[in-house]
Computed example of a mutant assay.
Amino acid sequence: MASTRRVCRGIANKVVFAILCILSAYLLSKFLAIVKRGMLISTSDDVIFTEYSLERNFSNITVPARRLYEKNGFVSLQFLNLGYVNITKSWICNVECLGILPRVLFITTDEEAHRSLSEWKPELNVVLEKFGDGKAMAYGKVSYYRYGLFRVQVINRLLRKERIPVFETEADSYWLGDPVAYFNRYTDFDMIIMHNGCADMIPSGVINGGFLYLNATAGTLRVWNKLSRRIASVLARYDDKEKDIGIEGSEQIILGKILQSDRLKLQWLPIEKFTSGYWYMQAEVRKKADPIVILNNYINGNGEKVKRAKRWGHWSLSEEGDICIAEACRTAL
C-alpha cells in the first residue's frame, strides 16, 4: 500500500512538473512578445525597454554623430518634424555665418521634413529617424511629451552606448554668437545648463530642457537614464495622444526633480548672456541682458513664436520660406 502511494505521488509530481513547464513556456512566450513590441518598461534605473529604444539602435543617427564627434569633440543636435521646418530654417539663416552648422546634426522625424531641409541646403548634416506623424504638437499634450521622450532616448543612446558628449539645442531661439566658444571656459562639469525663466533678471533655478551641454560622464549617464525611465513611466498611463496632461510629462521638470537628489557637477550659464523668453516680455530684462542666446519660449504655438520673432526682427527666413534674409546672421539687437 505504501509503495502504491509512493508511485502515485511520483506520478503526481511529474504531472505538476509538466504543467509548470508548459505554463512557464507560455508565460515566457508572452513576455518575449511584449518585449518584441517594445511595451515593457523596467523599474530599474539601469535598463529601460520602450518602443523607442528596444527595436532601434538609431544607426541613422549614431554613425554621423560619431563622425561629428571625432571632428569636433561633441555633437550638437536639433530635432524637427514637418511642423517645425520653417522655424529651423530661420535659425539656420540666423547662425550660418557663425561657423556653427558643420557641428549640428539635424534629426528629422518624417520624410517631408527630411526632404525639405536636405534639399534646401544639401551641405547640412540631416538624417531621417521616423517618429510621429509630422504635425505640429501642442505643449502639454501626450503627443508632445512622447516626442520629447523619443529625443531623450536618442540622447541616452549617444551618451550611454557611444560615449559622445551632446549639445542639445532648439531652433526657436535667436543667437548673436557661438555659445560653444563661451563654454570653453568651463571644464570638468557633468552638465552645462541654462536657467528657464528669470523674470526680472532673477535666476530661476529651473533647468531649461532645450539648451543643455551633456558630458558623457558616469553621473550624466545615470541621471539621463533615470530621466528616460521616469518620463516613460508617466506616458505609459495614457493611450490618448491628444490628452492634455499639463506639465506631468515635462522633461525639464522631471530632470530638475532628479537633480535635487542626484547631485552632479552643474555649471549654470549666466542669465545676462543666456536669456529666456522674458527678454521679449520685460523691458528690465532687455535693459540688463547682453545676450548670446535668446530663447523664444513662454509663448504657445509655432505660429505665435513666428509672429513674435518677426515683430522683434529675429526672423531670418523669407516669406516664401526658401531664402535667408540678407545679413540676418549679422543683425544685432
Score class of each variant (00 low, 15 high):
residue 203 P to L: 13
residue 148 G to D: 06
residue 161 K to F: 11
residue 142 V to Q: 04
residue 125 N to H: 12
residue 113 A to C: 09
residue 100 I to D: 01
residue 81 N to H: 13
residue 98 L to W: 07
residue 148 G to A: 07
residue 103 R to Y: 09
residue 179 P to R: 08
residue 160 R to F: 11
residue 136 A to S: 14
residue 78 Q to D: 09
residue 190 D to Y: 03
residue 123 E to W: 14
residue 98 L to S: 08
residue 141 K to Q: 15
residue 173 S to Q: 15
residue 112 E to K: 12
residue 154 V to L: 02
residue 198 C to R: 12
residue 95 V to A: 01
residue 66 R to C: 06
residue 202 I to T: 12
residue 182 Y to S: 10
residue 112 E to I: 11
residue 158 L to H: 02
residue 132 G to N: 02
residue 202 I to N: 10
residue 149 L to R: 04
residue 145 Y to R: 06
residue 115 R to S: 14
residue 163 R to M: 03
residue 185 R to H: 13
residue 141 K to P: 10
residue 151 R to N: 08
residue 178 D to R: 11
residue 93 C to W: 00
residue 171 A to K: 06
residue 188 D to N: 15
residue 125 N to L: 08
residue 95 V to D: 01
residue 170 E to R: 06
residue 70 E to L: 10
residue 175 W to I: 09
residue 86 N to T: 07
residue 82 L to Y: 07
residue 72 N to T: 04
residue 169 T to E: 10
residue 120 W to K: 07
residue 142 V to I: 10
residue 106 F to R: 02
residue 97 C to M: 04
residue 196 N to K: 11
residue 103 R to E: 15
residue 101 L to T: 07
residue 141 K to H: 12
residue 194 M to H: 13
residue 187 T to D: 05
residue 130 K to C: 02
residue 80 L to Y: 10
residue 109 T to P: 05
residue 180 V to H: 09
residue 154 V to W: 03
residue 153 Q to P: 05
residue 198 C to M: 14
residue 91 W to V: 00
residue 130 K to P: 08
residue 82 L to I: 08
residue 157 R to E: 14
residue 187 T to V: 13
residue 193 I to F: 00
residue 153 Q to Y: 05
residue 151 R to D: 04
residue 129 E to F: 03
residue 170 E to L: 01
residue 200 D to S: 15
residue 128 L to G: 05
residue 90 S to L: 09
residue 78 Q to R: 09
residue 157 R to F: 00
residue 176 L to F: 15
residue 142 V to G: 03
residue 82 L to V: 06
residue 93 C to G: 01
residue 87 I to T: 11
residue 178 D to Y: 09
residue 155 I to M: 05
residue 136 A to G: 15
residue 68 L to Y: 09
residue 199 A to C: 07
residue 124 L to F: 11
residue 90 S to M: 10
residue 199 A to R: 14
residue 183 F to T: 10
residue 124 L to G: 07
residue 187 T to A: 08
residue 204 S to P: 00
residue 158 L to M: 12
residue 118 S to Y: 04
residue 112 E to T: 10
residue 132 G to R: 02
residue 181 A to T: 09
residue 193 I to W: 00
